[in-house]
């Protein structure tokens, strides 16, 4: 039994960590390129959950029976529209503030977060919404001696693999494509990048779109996993994902994933073996300790100050 508990708690933590990681990517990319905390990102994730449920209902209503087909279509549509929301938010609330003081976009982001939450509340109601359990079943994880050490549902496997896959794709884009190079250039020095002919407005918009797309992936999968959502879910997850991004070193893509997994493991192990009441206290304490030892996060590059 004991091996089972540890194994199961590790699995719980990894799944939770993958979710945090997927959302943390949005924070870390925007922070890396603009140096601002996009507080509205959690709400973009919330929007994507609603979009996914609406598209799923529409497709089911239109007579799409096959679950894989429906899921792929819903995923595509959700990514498309969530990305559209991400772009719009950047265009309306952040672009006009590009050259003002550092805190103006932060306040604007808080405002956007309130707008998105209440827009959804007014148009969809304050009720809890849900999507049906589409993928059923689980697999048992056995240790070498055949003892079951935990079980994973198919949805959870899907979440972890989607997180790894999209993270890999994103890392590949950043490293090997022109777009990725432009992103990195903009990240390092916006003015210089502009002088070299990079349309930084475009790049920033693209970053918002990519971040929102990742949030959309999370939105669909997480909703499938937990089954329900309301207009307020973005807040709690947003703060945790942001913590994960900072823990891993904000601006670093693998850092976001690593931070997410560490945070998820911290929460589930502390909750499982010590006390659920204090799991968030523990998670934040770990964050503070890590930052005291490594002020730029686990995988972040220490900023070199030049005079």
């Amino acid at each position: 039994m004991n091996g089972y508990i540890v194994g199961q708690q590790v699995i719980n933590g990894l799944v939770l960590g993958a979710i945090y990681g997927l959302i943390a990517v949005g924070y870390t990319m925007v922070y890396g390129i603009m140096g601002m905390i996009n507080f509205a990102h959690g709400d973009i994730y919330m929007i994507s959950a609603y979009l996914a449920a609406i598209f799923l209902a529409l497709l089911t209503g239109a007579g799409v029976q096959s679950v894989p087909v429906a899921l792929v279509l819903v995923l595509a549509l959700t990514i498309l529209f969530t990305a559209f929301y991400g772009w719009t938010v950047e265009r309306v609330a952040y672009r006009p503030l590009r050259n003002s003081n550092r805190l103006a976009p932060l306040i604007s982001a808080i405002g956007v977060s309130l707008i998105l939450q209440n827009y959804v509340r007014i148009s969809q109601g304050a009720r809890n919404q849900g999507i049906p359990a589409l993928i059923e079943g689980h697999v048992r994880v056995n240790a070498a001696d055949g003892v079951t050490i935990g079980q994973v549902t198919y949805t959870q496997i899907l979440i972890v693999s989607a997180a790894l896959l999209s993270m890999g794709a994103l890392a590949w884009i950043m490293r090997h494509t022109t777009l990725g190079r432009s992103c990195r250039a903009t990240q390092q020095d916006r003015v210089m990048a502009e002088l070299l002919g990079i349309n930084t407005d475009h790049i920033i918009a693209t970053v918002f779109i990519m971040g929102a797309a990742m949030a959309a992936v999370a939105g669909l999968l997480v909703t499938l996993n937990y089954g329900s959502f309301d207009f307020f879910i973005g807040f709690v997850v947003g703060i945790k994902a942001f913590t994960a991004a900072v823990l891993g070193g904000i601006g670093s893509l693998p850092g976001a994933m690593l931070g997410g997994v560490i945070l998820g493991l911290c929460e589930s192990l502390f909750s499982g073996f010590v006390n659920t009441d204090y799991k968030d206290v523990f998670a934040f304490a770990v964050l503070i300790l890590v930052l005291v030892v490594r002020p730029s996060g686990l995988l972040g590059h220490p900023e070199v100050e030049k005079v």
Binding site: I5, Q8, L16, S228, I233, F235, S268, S271, G272, N275
Partner: peptide
């Protein structure tokens, strides 16, 4: 006897603990 956090969606760790 434990408390969970309102607004969260993942209580798997708690459930595993209850099960244990």
């Amino acid at each position: 006897y434990e408390g969970l956090t309102r607004g969260e969606k993942d209580f798997n760790a708690l459930v595993t603990k209850i099960k244990s």
